[in-house]
Simulated scan of single mutants.
Amino acid sequence: MANIKDLDIEEEIIFNLISCSGEGRSLIFEAFNAVKKEEYNEAEKLMDMATESILKAHNIQTKLIQGEAAGQHREINLLMVHAQDHLMSTILSQNLIKNMISMQKEINQLKNELKNK
């Protein structure tokens, strides 16, 4: 059975995973809103920041997986499931928003062409 100190470390790892994932997701949606306002440089910066946050979360996940593969078995609890779900949905959001940003740029260009006619 794990002692209290081990549980604190485990919770800290899980909350870091959730925090990095959540920060990444927030930045992704901020980037999309910037593109809607035709603030392309800002959107690119936000997407880069989001990628950094997601990479931090992914690195935490990778260390957990490597530990598991090395025989360091952890008790799976609802908090860990939530953290994994958070990361998965953030990565999915990143992939979808990248495509949506491309589409929004085309929409913006078409709108501007129509305004200038």
Rank of each mutant, 00 (worst) to 15 (best):
F32G: 07
Q61F: 04
G24W: 06
I28E: 04
L46E: 07
E52W: 00
G24F: 04
L27E: 03
H58G: 03
E38G: 01
G67P: 10
A57F: 05
S21L: 01
A50E: 03
I14S: 02
E38S: 14
L64A: 09
S26I: 10
A31H: 07
N41G: 14
Q61A: 07
E30S: 15
S53I: 08
K45R: 14
G22E: 00
D48A: 13
F29A: 05
L64R: 10
N16T: 00
K36E: 10
T62Q: 11
Y40T: 03
E44N: 13
F15R: 02
N16P: 02
E11N: 12
A50C: 05
L55K: 15
C20M: 12
E12Y: 01
M47Q: 07
A69K: 14
I28H: 03
E12H: 03
I18T: 02
A34T: 06
K56I: 11
T51L: 07
T51C: 03
E44I: 04
K37E: 15
L46C: 02
A69Y: 09
E23S: 08
Q61I: 01
E38D: 13
R25I: 05
C20P: 02
Q61Y: 06
M49D: 15
K36D: 01
A43R: 04
C20Y: 15
Q66I: 13
C20W: 09
L17A: 00
A50D: 02
I28V: 15
G22I: 00
G22D: 01
C20H: 15
R25T: 04
I13W: 04
Q66N: 14
A57M: 09
Y40M: 08
M49V: 04
S19P: 02
G67L: 06
T51P: 00
T62A: 12
I54E: 03
K36G: 01
F32T: 05
M47T: 09
S53F: 07
Y40R: 06
E68V: 03
S19L: 05
T51R: 07
S21H: 01
I18H: 01
D48M: 11
S19E: 02
N59Y: 08
V35G: 08
I54F: 02
K36S: 03
L17C: 00
E30T: 11
A69P: 08
F15M: 13
N33K: 14
G67H: 06
E23Y: 02
L55M: 13
E68S: 10
E11K: 10
A50K: 01
E39Q: 14
H58R: 11
Q61C: 04
K63F: 00
G24M: 06
I60R: 00
M49Y: 11
S26D: 09
G24H: 05
F32D: 06
E12G: 06
I13S: 03
L64N: 04
A69T: 13
V35I: 15
I18L: 10
L64H: 01
L55H: 13
C20D: 15
L55F: 08
K63L: 08
K45I: 11
Y40E: 12
E42N: 14
N59S: 11
G24E: 06
E52V: 13
L55T: 14
L17Y: 00
A50G: 05
N59M: 09
I54D: 03
A57R: 08
S26A: 15
E39L: 12
F15S: 09
F15A: 03
N59I: 04
E12K: 05
S26E: 09
F32R: 12
E39F: 04
G67V: 08
R25L: 05
I13D: 01
T62H: 09
V35Q: 10
